Computed example of a mutant assay.
Amino acid sequence: MSAIAKLPTPPYYAVIFSSERTEGDKGYGLMADKMVELASRQTGYLGIESARDEALGITVSYWASLESIKAWKDNAAHQVAQQRGKSEWYQSFALRISKVERDYYFDR
């Protein structure tokens, strides 16, 4: 199974979350897994891709609309995770929202 999300024909939206972590797990891994599972049940969710090395993590989630992104941002459980991220897990982060107008996919 590919780690690359299979997505519908554009347009759709990408939420790009880049982060630098603090030291130690402090429950981060469990919460990250919970958030992926919860996001996947949200209306408008299309898929996710994520990669992390020692210094930088990048997660891109894909959504059908700006309204579905806003609903996910406002989800109560997600808000708890966001607050813990600011207080415990992230040294710094950036979040960017982009409209995908074209995409290409290759699979051998």
Rank of each mutant, 00 (worst) to 15 (best):
M1E: 14
M1K: 14
S2Q: 12
S2C: 07
S2F: 10
K6E: 15
K6V: 13
T9M: 15
T9W: 10
P10S: 10
P10M: 14
Y12E: 04
Y13P: 12
A14M: 04
A14D: 04
V15A: 14
V15N: 11
V15L: 15
I16D: 01
F17I: 04
S18Y: 14
S19A: 08
E20V: 03
T22W: 01
T22Q: 02
E23Q: 04
G24V: 07
G27S: 07
Y28Q: 01
Y28I: 00
L30P: 09
M31R: 13
M31N: 13
M31A: 14
D33T: 13
K34T: 08
M35N: 06
M35L: 06
M35K: 08
V36Y: 10
V36L: 10
V36S: 13
E37L: 09
E37T: 11
L38Q: 15
L38N: 14
A39C: 02
A39R: 13
S40T: 02
S40N: 11
R41G: 07
Q42C: 08
T43L: 10
T43W: 03
T43I: 08
G44E: 04
Y45C: 03
Y45L: 04
G47Y: 07
I48Q: 09
E49G: 10
A51Q: 10
R52F: 00
R52L: 01
D53Y: 02
D53I: 02
E54Q: 03
E54I: 00
A55T: 07
A55Y: 02
L56W: 10
G57Q: 03
G57R: 01
I58T: 14
T59N: 09
S61D: 05
S61W: 06
Y62C: 09
Y62R: 08
Y62S: 07
Y62Q: 07
W63S: 12
W63A: 13
A64D: 06
A64R: 02
S65P: 03
S65H: 00
S65N: 01
L66I: 03
E67D: 12
E67T: 06
S68T: 06
S68V: 04
S68E: 04
K70A: 03
A71S: 11
A71M: 05
W72L: 09
N75R: 02
N75C: 05
A77P: 06
H78K: 05
Q79D: 09
V80P: 02
A81I: 08
Q82L: 08
Q82D: 06
Q83L: 11
R84H: 10
K86A: 13
S87G: 01
E88Y: 11
E88M: 08
E88G: 00
W89T: 00
W89Q: 02
W89E: 05
W89V: 01
Y90M: 00
Y90T: 00
Q91A: 05
S92R: 08
L95K: 12
R96F: 00
I97D: 04
I97H: 05
S98C: 07
V100T: 05
E101G: 03
D103C: 10
Y104V: 11
Y104I: 10
D107F: 10
D107L: 15
R108K: 14
R108V: 15
R108D: 15
